[in-house]
Nucleic acid binder design. Structure first.
Length: 638
RNA sequence: GGUCCGAUAGCUCAACUGGAUAGAGCAACUGCCUUCUAAGCAGUAGGUUCCAGGUUCGAGUCCUGGUCGGAUCACCA
């Protein structure tokens, strides 16, 4: 319908002023609610080209449209804004079209392939709140891209090897006493505990080494607590405005402290053992590999449970243990072609100073792979596996630099897919107390959080007495739907790029701008539809097509429902589930208004009654579609 | 210090890519359940869009310079 009017405006300008105007340059916007009308055309943009003032142009185009375009019933002009009043019968027709559109909520296939990598867990760390944002985002973006016409492949890249993994393995060997996962401790938690245990023991060793070796440094011999001194000295230089110059003694001290700390950190027996274990693992030592497999198995079982609860899944999983050696060939290739260069110690680099990205290491001097080496290899592997034109990496914004470099490198190497690399960089999730710090125990565990949400949902639902007649099974399904709906909506309604605040109180709120509010409207409509069916009411499009009068709230709702597919495209282009989440809320809110304004079953006019039921049904469809795209289920009753 | 990102109502977030008097929710206050689900609806109050310049018919949005906050700049991942 908008297209119809845009064409009309183009025609009007042509016939009135003899000027050809590209349709793409004509943009309509919704009319602000304090003015009459539904769509607005801004005429300021044409003043120069046409040599008339904005009001004159608006007047002329308005008249032309009223005469020649049936949909336009009337118009008014405020300054340079031409507000078009669309006749109600047009909105009635629009709804009928939406109802009959089999592709509502699904854009035509575009034949393009896109891969979305998300989750990418570290097997030492149980999933926490930050991972929830990642998983929900990645999963939702995959669903949205699919709805927008892409062929989507969802993948996970598991970080299952490296020195940090050996740390938890070592701790398990030393302090594990053969513990295995149980009903109270799932596998990923168990392994995570040993990672923490390692860190604790390691810190102790460092402290011991520091006190043993302190006497080697004359400047520190009289110092009681070197770490405290380090902090004190650094604090002097920290403040920009009140920088306090260091004394000569302090300069020596800080230098010695740094040397001492580095010595202690690198020579703690536990770390040396972990490094030895990594060497064994890389050499394929049977015992080490067996332990690694056993512990990883536990982790995967634990993760699988969490993923299932979150409702996310993958088409393919990559393991770093299988990809970390890839990329070395690419380094050679880059050396041969002159994209990379070697430094004296045989380390390999790329010079990206021209792109303001500085020099970056792509292979260590001893020939071992770094993160970048691995990612280059994985990029090639992904392309070989799936042949996509776009490759999305859902990774936090602390890795912005890394992905800029990765993309630049692949471009320099002439990879055809390089331009399609997109880092979906999302902001951190902060708590009211500030950032989550594992050391300070402020990390919000994903499993715990979800369970708390479910408990809250149960409590609130029981309070409201809305589940009379539910079986226990139905009730528990509902609690889960509400809990995850609340959580996902809360995390996804915010623009992914932005750092967001997670307020535990607000997240479990069920009022206002929340997932539950949207779900509630869906359930309310389903109840209506059940009654309509029971009463045998026919509300197919033919029953209301001749209706000519609607309320403003109703026509606004139809207009909103008509935007479904545009929103999907918009949100896919921006990789932003927040657009869909906000759309779902807008529809629910507008529906809620319509619902409260006009009764349905007491309506005497049969056409109106049928229209309202059809409008309700279509709203439920829109809500259901939009929520599904952010991974949220719509309950039939609640 | 270099680079990148952010700053909008007391709080959490929007603002269709430069359009009208910047909108929602929460919190506060006022109405509305004898009528299809009140997890709801309607209303009141709340703003120097961090600051200073600039670009133009028009700037929260674009440009320049600042302030404040965050990230990153490892032969870690």
């Amino acid at each position: 319908m908008e297209q119809l009017i845009i064409n009309g405006i183009a025609e009007a300008v042509k016939s009135l002023y003899g000027v050809e105007l590209e349709a793409s340059r004509i943009a309509l916007q919704p009319t602000k609610k304090e003015f009459e009308g539904s769509l607005t055309f801004v005429t300021f943009g044409l003043t120069k080209q046409l040599g008339k003032n904005p009001v004159e142009i608006g007047e002329a185009i308005g008249n032309y449209l009223k005469e020649n375009v049936d949909a336009v019933a009337d118009f008014n002009i405020v300054k340079g804004f031409l507000n078009l009043v669309i006749s109600d019968s047009v909105w009635v027709t629009t709804l009928a079209q939406l109802v009959e559109d089999e592709n509502y909520g699904r854009v035509a296939r575009n034949g393009e392939k896109v891969m979305v990598e998300y989750s990418s867990p570290n097997t030492n760390k149980p999933l926490h709140l930050g991972h929830l944002r990642n998983n929900f985002l990645g999963h939702s973006v995959s669903l949205i891209l699919d709805a927008a016409g892409y062929d989507v492949q969802k993948v996970n890249l598991v970080n299952d090897r490296g020195i940090h993994i050996c740390k938890s393995m070592l701790a398990y060997v030393k302090f594990g006493n053969g513990e295995t996962p149980s009903a109270t401790v799932k596998g990923d938690k168990l392994v995570g505990n040993y990672y923490v245990a390692f860190d604790k023991a390691y810190k102790k060793e460092i402290a011991q080494l520091i006190s043993d070796k302190q006497s080697d440094y004359p400047s520190l011999s009289a110092v009681e607590d070197v770490k405290a001194l380090k902090k004190a000295i650094e604090a002097k230089g920290a403040s920009k405005k009140n920088k306090i110059p260091l004394t000569e003694e302090e300069k020596v001290q800080i230098k010695d402290i740094k040397a001492l700390l580095e010595y202690a950190e690198k020579n703690a027996p536990l770390l040396l053992e972990a490094q030895e274990m990594l060497r064994k693992w890389e050499a394929g030592d049977k015992e080490t590999v067996a332990l690694w497999e056993k512990m990883n198995g536990w982790v995967y079982e634990g993760f699988a449970q969490s993923y299932k609860m979150m409702g996310v899944e993958f088409d393919n999983v990559y393991y770093e243990s299988q990809t970390y050696l890839l990329g070395k060939d690419i380094v050679q290739e880059g050396l041969d072609s002159g994209v990379f260069f070697k430094k004296e110690n045989d380390s390999v680099w790329i010079d990206l100073k021209k792109e303001k990205l500085d020099e970056k290491l792509v292979l260590r001097g001893d020939g071992t792979a770094v993160y970048m080496t691995q990612d280059m290899g994985t990029a090639d592997l992904k392309y070989k596996d799936f042949g996509m034109t776009k490759s999305v990496y859902v990774v936090g914004n602390e890795q912005d630099y890394h992905f800029k470099v990765l993309k630049a490198i692949m471009k320099h190497l002439g990879r055809s897919y390089a331009d399609g690399i997109y880092h979906l960089s999302y902001g951190m999730v902060e708590l009211p107390e500030g950032k989550m710090k594992s050391r300070e125990g402020t990390v919000v565990d994903a499993d715990d959080l979800i369970q708390e949400m479910i408990d809250t949902a149960e409590e609130r639902t029981k309070e409201s007495g809305k589940i009379d007649g539910f079986s226990d099974k139905e009730a528990s399904v509902l609690f889960k739907q509400l809990a995850l709906g609340a959580l996902k909506y809360y995390l996804l309604k915010v623009d992914p790029k932005k750092t967001m605040l997670f307020n535990p109180q607000e997240s479990i709120d069920f009022q206002g701008d929340t997932g539950v509010y949207i779900q509630y409207n869906h359930a309310k409509i389903q109840a209506l539809l059940r009654r309509a069916d029971k009463d045998g009411i026919n509300y197919t499009t033919s029953t209301f097509k001749d209706l000519t009068e609607l309320s403003n709230a109703e026509s606004d709702l139809v207009a909103l429902l008509g935007k479904m597919n545009d929103k999907i495209t918009e949100s896919a282009d921006a990789y932003a589930p927040s657009i869909i989440a906000n759309y779902a809320f807008d529809v629910a809110k507008q529906y809620s208004k319509v619902y409260s304004e006009s009764p349905i079953f007491n309506e005497e006019d049969e056409a109106k009654k049928a229209f309202r039921i059809a409008l309700s049904a279509q709203s439920a469809k829109a809500i259901n579609n939009a929520l599904a795209l952010i991974g949220v289920q719509s309950p039939e009753r609640m």
